[in-house]
């Protein structure tokens, strides 16, 4: 019985991976760089690829924030699975809605 009790001196630091300020700083600089890049590229005419590049950079920034600032890289499998399922569900819903819209003969768009 005694063994099952938590140790009173247990602190979260013992099992949580502490991300160092160096990592946070690197990610911060990368995010600012990507912001400058996406802004700069928008001034270049790439046709339809303007939107593609902008969204690719936004997805990269999101990945950096989620993995490092939100600690998913260091979290347990349940949390990783939760995040992945959320993104998957969101993309599935968008995909199904868009496939409905583009396959109807409503015309004019």
């Amino acid at each position: 019985m005694q063994l099952e009790q938590p140790r009173p001196d247990e602190t979260p630091g013992e099992h949580i991976h502490i991300v160092s300020p160096k990592v946070y700083g690197t990610i911060f600089v990368a995010l600012l760089f990507l912001t400058a890049a996406t802004c700069g590229i928008s001034y270049v005419d790439l046709g339809v690829f303007n939107a593609v590049v902008a969204m690719a950079i936004a997805c990269t920034k999101m990945t950096l924030v989620v993995l490092f600032f939100m600690h998913i890289k260091y979290s347990n499998k349940l949390t990783k699975l939760t995040v992945a399922s959320g993104i998957f569900l969101f993309l599935s819903l968008i995909g199904m809605i868009m496939s409905d819209y583009i396959s109807r003969a409503w015309g004019r768009w």
Binding site: V19, Y24, I27, F28, L31, L32, V65, F69
Partner: peptide
């Protein structure tokens, strides 16, 4: 983005 860094 800076505020996210200070939050981290």
């Amino acid at each position: 983005i800076t505020s996210s860094f200070t939050m981290a």
